[in-house]
């Protein structure tokens, strides 16, 4: 219940945070909402020497339309997103997913940027961001760069984010007309992380699937795009049968994780079920 001792700096700007991180190197951790980091620190599973607090940076906390894109500041909380009309109107899976994260108190403090940087293999946002074709904007001592969500999650708790970089924003391109989306999740009953979560967006034209984007989380060491499901459904009529058939490809060839809540085999089964449910909901 008592974390180790550490030095604490509250950054007054993103640039200052970057400077502080560069200054303290490997020993430092960024603190946003703190809802992944602090529990680990209290158990002393993690003992950083320095925390750089970016949780109060107003410049990171916004949700807005920019041209055709939806831009969400990394400091937007899950609750901000859950209640954002502009986010819901862009892709309803954003608010659906936000509402399924943790509990009310966690949603009030936890941030989108924090969750993406943490890259928990069972977190909800990574799948949603992949399915939304989001671009993640990063800033470091050498300036800014953008990484596609598809390339951002590189492994178990691993991302393309460098040690001295900060996620500043998430940019989601406006989906084509006729696009609907859904996030469906089978919860681990204790932690309420995803055992399997599936984010799907479907662009429909005359009952035919023009474009589909599907991503899964919870299944493996990182969230990933279910390309084979997409391939199986693109151009097909959006019938129950076609969707169910396409969903069969979910998790194909994936080395699934297993624990006492859900074995590898069961997780792979759930991937199919939740891919189907997300696609059905998005195609409605």
């Amino acid at each position: 219940m008592i974390p180790n001792s550490f030095d604490y700096h509250r950054a007054t700007s993103v640039d200052e945070a970057i400077r502080l991180m560069a200054q303290h190197g490997m020993d430092a951790k960024l603190l946003a909402g703190g809802h992944s980091l602090l529990p680990a620190m209290k158990l002393r599973l993690n003992q950083p020497g320095v925390l750089v607090d970016i949780g109060r940076l107003a410049e990171l906390r916004y949700i807005k339309k920019e041209g055709d894109s939806l831009v969400i500041g990394a400091g937007a909380t899950h609750d901000d997103i859950a209640n954002s009309e502009v986010a819901r109107n862009t892709l309803s899976m954003l608010s659906e997913a936000a509402n399924l994260i943790g509990d009310v108190q966690v949603r009030n403090k936890g941030t989108l940027g924090g969750s993406l940087a943490h890259a928990d293999p069972a977190a909800d946002w990574p799948a949603v961001m992949i399915a939304a074709h989001a671009h993640i904007e990063l800033r470091g001592p050498n300036g800014s760069r953008t990484v596609a969500a598809d390339d951002f999650f590189t492994g178990f708790y691993m991302t393309a984010l460098a040690e001295d970089e900060i996620i500043t924003a998430i940019r989601i391109p406006a989906p084509p007309k006729g696009t609907h989306s859904s996030y469906q999740k089978f919860m681990q009953p204790a932690s309420r992380f995803a055992i399997v979560g599936c984010a799907a967006s479907v662009t429909k034209d005359g009952g035919v699937c023009q474009k589909v984007s599907v991503a899964l989380t919870g299944l493996s060491d990182t969230a990933f795009r279910a390309s084979n499901v997409e391939a199986a459904l693109t151009g097909k009529k959006l019938t129950k049968e076609n969707i169910a058939a396409a969903a069969q490809a979910a998790g194909e060839g994936v080395m699934a994780m297993g624990d006492h809540f859900a074995s590898e085999e069961y997780r792979l089964h759930l991937a199919k079920v939740f891919a189907k449910r997300a696609l059905m909901a998005a195609a409605e």
Binding site: L43, L45, F156, M158, D221, M257
Partner: peptide
């Protein structure tokens, strides 16, 4: 006690 889910992933990685 607390790291089961995490540890299988750690081993994989």
């Amino acid at each position: 006690r607390t790291g089961q889910r995490v540890m299988s992933g750690v081993a994989n990685t």
